[in-house]
Computed example of a mutant assay.
Amino acid sequence: MGFETTRPLRFGDCDPSGIAYFPSYLNMLVGVLEDFFASLGFPWKTLIADRRIGVPTVRLDVTFSNPGFQGDELEFDIAVAGIGRSSLDLNHTISAYGKVLWTARQRVVATSLDTHQSLAWPADVRAALTHHLETTDAHDPAA
């Protein structure tokens, strides 16, 4: 069960030729991740200010397949690929008009904002993330 949302590709997200500027994509990805956590009931303001939990990216592998253009409506799909003690592996697929523009594999880690060390996902956050965990059988037509 993935998370889906859309974002417009705006004039300010593009280079002078009207093609998406890749750092804008990464900025959008951060916003989509923030929306994902909010949809689980854990807005970042609460995680950061009240619970003192950070969610930094420790690995990001991006593959660009097709250009995005100003005015495109980008469809972001997040799949939870794995949950570790403190890590969370996510697969992102970003498309427009049914065509994949780019994909990303991302690992974020729960950290204490007081010690800046990793910490185990709190039980309530882990339970919400686990609800979204994709299994390999779900993608295997033979299963």
Rank of each mutant, 00 (worst) to 15 (best):
R107M: 10
G2A: 11
R107V: 15
N66M: 01
F36V: 04
R59E: 14
F11W: 13
R126C: 08
I19V: 15
N91D: 15
D114M: 08
G82K: 15
G18A: 10
P23T: 02
T130P: 01
S118V: 09
A81H: 09
R10W: 00
L133S: 11
L47N: 03
L101I: 00
Y97N: 14
P16M: 05
R51L: 12
D35E: 14
A143G: 15
P43F: 03
R126P: 09
G31M: 03
G84L: 12
V80K: 14
L29C: 04
T103F: 00
D114C: 00
Y97E: 14
T5K: 08
T130Q: 15
L90S: 09
M1H: 08
I94Y: 03
I94P: 01
F37S: 02
S112P: 11
F22P: 08
G68L: 11
D77W: 05
A110M: 10
G82E: 12
M28S: 06
P16W: 11
V58I: 15
A96C: 13
R126Y: 10
G82R: 15
D114Y: 03
S87P: 09
N27L: 07
A38C: 00
W121D: 05
N27C: 04
R107W: 01
A96Y: 05
I83F: 12
N91G: 09
L29D: 06
G98S: 10
A120R: 12
Y21I: 04
A127G: 03
I83H: 13
E73V: 14
D61L: 07
P23Q: 05
T115M: 05
L129M: 06
R52P: 08
A38T: 10
V30K: 03
L119V: 11
T115A: 14
H139W: 13
N66V: 01
L113W: 09
Y21R: 03
N27I: 04
D124F: 03
L29R: 00
D15L: 01
Q70R: 07
I78L: 15
R52G: 06
H92T: 07
P8S: 10
N91T: 03
M28K: 10
A104G: 02
L119F: 00
T63Q: 02
V30N: 08
F3I: 07
F11K: 06
A49L: 13
I48L: 08
E75H: 13
L88W: 11
W102Q: 03
S95G: 14
W102D: 01
L74W: 13
P23N: 01
L101D: 00
V125H: 06
R105V: 02
R10D: 05
F22A: 02
A138R: 15
E134G: 10
L88G: 12
R51M: 07
D137M: 11
Y21A: 00
E134D: 07
T135E: 12
L119G: 08
S118M: 09
A120S: 15
E4Y: 03
T135F: 03
T46C: 02
Y97M: 10
H132Y: 14
S87T: 14
A79W: 09
A142T: 13
W102L: 10
A143Q: 07
L33H: 09
D77G: 11
T57V: 15
V62C: 04
F22L: 07
T115R: 12
A127D: 09
D72M: 05
A20N: 04
L101H: 01
